[in-house]
């Protein structure tokens, strides 16, 4: 009899499962090791379901054709992520305008194999005008005005979690991000990067703690959410994020030197996640263990 198959792959193989033009959903905490690998590979024309600065990085790196996002703020007092803003204003990316309830409805419709799910939030607004995929309709039971949200089906969902065994039994510290399981259920395949691979016995000790059963692939990348946080492991590297935001802001204003240097240093020169961590440096990484 053959033995049970391991789900462990490395980040290079994980990114090779993504092809130009695919729809990629990115959960929270942000699976940055996989995001970096997408940029490293120079993938193009992706439809990206994401928020915030990881979305901004993918756009700035030229990987994105279409954005499905409810929020592209920059943080640190910057109301709109700079690369997102510039690309959208210049018509270089298409935006599938939505909001949190519409996005989860679309993901849920995909997971349930339904042509649409109804949602009320957005009725009366411009959302169905600027996003013609959203249809205003009268519900057949009570005749109420609602939006029909079509399925949002990621080809690949990328998530970050605390641990998994080699069979893809994933356990989070403090539970998954609020949208992670919607993305996982809707996607054709889900790749979860984890801080640590644990023994199958460790999972069996507390099977109720398993948040994703049998993820398609597991990538072991300690510090893999850097510069974002990973619950139970490290806090967010705000200094690094601010450096990125400054570089992206300058690039959006026509001076891309700092942004090119950022991508060269953190995405193109390091061949792997371990090389990336060497660029960040052990001192900085250890500082992130102080609450």
């Amino acid at each position: 009899m053959e033995s049970r198959t391991s789900h462990i792959i490395d980040e290079v193989e994980a990114a090779s499962r993504i092809e130009d033009g695919m729809t990629v959903a990115i959960g929270s905490p942000t699976p940055m090791a996989l995001v970096h690998q997408i940029i490293r590979r120079g993938l193009k024309d992706l439809t990206v379901v994401d928020v915030g600065l990881s979305l901004d990085m993918l756009i700035a790196a030229g990987c994105v054709r279409k954005v499905v996002s409810y929020y592209a703020g920059g943080g640190f007092g910057v109301p709109v992520a700079p690369a997102f803003r510039r690309a959208a204003e210049r018509g270089e990316i298409e935006v599938w305008e939505c909001e949190e309830g519409i996005l989860t409805s679309g993901l849920q419709a995909a997971a349930q194999g339904l042509p649409f799910l109804p949602w009320r939030g957005g009725v009366g607004t411009s959302l169905p005008e600027v996003n013609p995929d959203l249809k205003v309709f009268a519900d057949p039971i009570r005749g109420e005005t609602l939006l029909a949200v079509p399925p949002i089906k990621p080809d690949v969902t990328l998530l970050h979690a605390a641990v998994s065994d080699v069979y893809g039994n994933v356990q989070h510290v403090g539970g998954p991000g609020w949208i992670d399981l919607f993305m996982q259920r809707a996607a054709d395949q889900t790749i979860v990067q984890v801080e640590k691979v644990v023994a199958n016995e460790d999972v069996r000790k507390d099977p109720w703690a398993t948040t994703i059963a049998g993820a398609d692939a597991i990538v072991r990348v300690p510090y893999g959410a850097h510069p974002f946080y990973s619950r139970g492991y490290y806090v967010q590297d705000n200094a690094h994020l601010k450096d990125y935001l400054d570089a992206s802001t300058a690039a959006a204003k026509g001076d891309p030197a700092a942004l090119h240097a950022y991508f060269a240093r953190y995405c193109r020169e390091p061949a792997t996640h371990a090389d990336y961590l060497e660029q960040i440096g052990i001192r900085r990484l250890l500082e992130l263990h102080e609450y």
Binding site: Y70, P79, E97, E99, E100, G121, G122, S126
Partner: peptide
């Protein structure tokens, strides 16, 4: 969402609606 007559090339692209359509509903 943003400011400008043409949605495909807004003069100012806003951050997006977050959850405000559902919350305000």
């Amino acid at each position: 969402i943003g400011v400008g007559p043409d949605y495909a090339t807004l003069r100012f692209r806003g951050p997006g609606s977050v959850g405000t359509p559902t919350l305000s509903t």
